[in-house]
Design a protein around this nucleic acid. Structure first.
Lengths: 191, 191
DNA sequence: TACCATCTTGAACGATTGTTCTAAAATTAT
DNA sequence: ATAATTTTAGAACAATCGTTCAAGATGGTA
C-alpha cells in the first residue's frame, strides 16, 4: 500500500522525553526537538501531534517506566526490606544519573496550571503511594513497624520525602548528604 | 537635575515577582510583565535590566522576605514549640494563598541549569536550615528532643519535608491532607 | 527663565516561536 | 510496471519572543 516509517516512534519519543526531562517543557523548543529526535518537523507533527501532545506522551511514558522501576526495585525477603530498597534505589538512580524525577520537575513547572499534566502526575503519584501502602500494611502485619502506625499516612510521607530528597540533591549536588538523609528517613519510618 | 521616576521600583518589582511566582520564568513573557507591572518596556529595561536580571531580583526579594517570615513565625516559649509554629505557619500560608514556595518552583524549573538561580536558592536554603538547626540545638539542650538526635540532620530533614508538603499540596489540593502530613512530620521529629 | 539630564512613550528591531504546506522521494499491492 | 499512498525534506507562515532606540515630556538646578 504505502511507505513504512523509517524510524521507531517509541525510540524517538524517548529521545524527546530525555530532552524535556533535562530542560523542562517551556525551555524546550520545537527546533531542539527536531535536532534531538533526528526527525523532520513534519514527521513529528504527523506522528505525535503538536508539542504539548508530544510532551504528554513523554510524561506518560516516563510515569509508566518509573512505576515499573519502583516495583522492580522492591526486592527483599520482608516488606520493610522492600521499602528500604525502593528508597535506596531511587536515591541511587538520582545520584548516578544526576537527574531528578521528571514528574516532580513537571509538577512544579506545569501541574499547577496544566490540567492534563496534573492528571497524569497525580495518577502516577497515587500508584506509587498505593504500592508503598500495601508494603507497609504487610510490614505492620508482620510486626516490622509498630501497630499504632497508619500505613497510608506513612506511604504518603515516604513519597513526599522523595521530592525533598530530589530538591536536596539539586541544591547540594552532594551524594553523601542525600544518602544520609535517605537513611534518616528509613530510620524514622522504622522507628 | 532631572525627572523623578513616576513609580515605586520596589512595588512594581513585587508585581513582577508575583507573576513569575505564578507562571514560572519561561512561561512569563516580557509582554506579560509590561501588562502586570503597568510599566513601559523601556522603563523596565532601564530600571531592572533584562528579563533574567529582573527575575534574579524578584527571586532575591522573595528569598529575603520568606526568611523573614519564617523567623517571624518562630514564636513560642520553647524551641520545639517555635519549630512547630514555623512548620504550621508555612503550611497555613500555602493552603490559604494556594501558592507554593517560589524558590522551590524555581529549583525544579531552573536551578539545575542556571548558576545564578542555583546560588540564590542554595544560600536561602542554607539560611533556613541554619535557623532550624539553632532551634533544634536549643531543643536538644532543653531535653525536648532526645540526646541521640543530630540537630543539623534533623534541620535538613525538616527543610526537605517542606518541599514534599508543597508537592503534596499541588497534586492533592487538599488542605486537610497537607495539615495531616505536617502534623505527622512534627510527631516524627519530636518522637 | 533656560538648561539639560533623566524618564516616559511607543514604534520597531531581528530572532525565534509553534505550526502548516507543498512537492519530491519512497514503498508496496496490484 | 503502474497506481496508490505515505513519508520525507525544507521552505514558509503568522505570531510572539526579548530587546533597542529615537523622540517627546518632565522637573530640579543654575
Amino acid at each position: 500500500m504505502a511507505r513504512k516509517k523509517e524510524f521507531d516512534p517509541e525510540e524517538r519519543m524517548e529521545k524527546a522525553r530525555d530532552l524535556f526531562w533535562e530542560k523542562g517543557y517551556n525551555a524546550t523548543s520545537m527546533e531542539d526537538l527536531v535536532q534531538t529526535m533526528g526527525l523532520n518537523r513534519g514527521s513529528i507533527y504527523d506522528t505525535y501531534g503538536d508539542k504539548h501532545s508530544l510532551y504528554l506522551q513523554c510524561l506518560g511514558n516516563y510515569a509508566a517506566e518509573k512505576l515499573k522501576e519502583h516495583k522492580e526495585a522492591a526486592s527483599g525477603t520482608s516488606p520493610m526490606e522492600r521499602v528500604e530498597n525502593m528508597i535506596r534505589s531511587a536515591v541511587e538512580a538520582t545520584v548516578n544519573t544526576g537527574k531528578c524525577c521528571m514528574a516532580v520537575n513537571s509538577t512544579f513547572e506545569l501541574a499547577a496550571v496544566d490540567q492534563s499534566v496534573h492528571s497524569i502526575i497525580k495518577n502516577n503519584w497515587k500508584d506509587i503511594v498505593d504500592f508503598f501502602e500495601q508494603l507497609l500494611t504487610d510490614a505492620k502485619a508482620q510486626g516490622e513497624i509498630s501497630a499504632d502506625k497508619d500505613p497510608k499516612l506513612l506511604a504518603e510521607f515516604i513519597a513526599a520525602n522523595f521530592t525533598g530528597l530530589w530538591q536536596t540533591f539539586i541544591l547540594s549536588r552532594d551524594k553523601k548528604q542525600v544518602e544520609k538523609l535517605a537513611q534518616f528517613l528509613i530510620d524514622m519510618v522504622k522507628n
